[in-house]
């Protein structure tokens, strides 16, 4: 019958499954969402969630199954937890500074005049020519 060990293992496995589903959803978000800023939400938030769930699952599994408390996994969880927001922030900021346009219907962009001044006529970088611009 189900003992504690078994239950915990199941929890671990299910959290892994949950993680994979979240990750799938986030991936769909990456595909479906209209611009880089919205996509970054999908990526950084839900993926981080997924990885945390997954790693926790793995941690629990090893702990229960092998009696092995993995410092590395904890370290990994902490690390991802610290760095994921930072990298999300940096990429989005970089995107903005590289003048990647917002999706239509995003509402007012209050930062734009502050950051780039009033150069309304300045050529915005369209999605197509970013590569060529490099």
């Amino acid at each position: 019958m189900l003992n504690v060990k078994e239950i915990l293992e199941w929890i671990a496995v299910l959290s892994v499954l949950l993680a994979s589903i979240i990750s799938m959803i986030s991936a769909f978000g990456m595909i479906r969402l209209p611009d880089v800023y919205t996509r970054s939400h999908a990526a950084t938030k839900s993926s981080t969630m997924a990885v945390l769930a997954c790693l926790s699952g793995a941690f629990i599994y090893f702990w229960v199954h092998d009696g092995y408390v993995s410092v590395r996994l904890i370290l990994g969880i902490v690390f991802v937890f610290i760095t994921a927001p930072v990298s999300g922030h940096l990429v989005t900021r970089a995107a903005y500074r590289a003048r990647v346009p917002l999706a239509e219907g995003s509402g007012d962009d209050a930062l734009k005049p502050v950051l780039f001044g009033d150069e309304q006529t300045s050529p915005t970088i369209t999605a197509d020519n970013v590569d060529k611009h490099e």
Partner: peptide, 10 residues
Amino acid sequence: VILRTVVKGV
């Protein structure tokens, strides 16, 4: 600032 702060820890 954010980057540097985090990096110091990381």
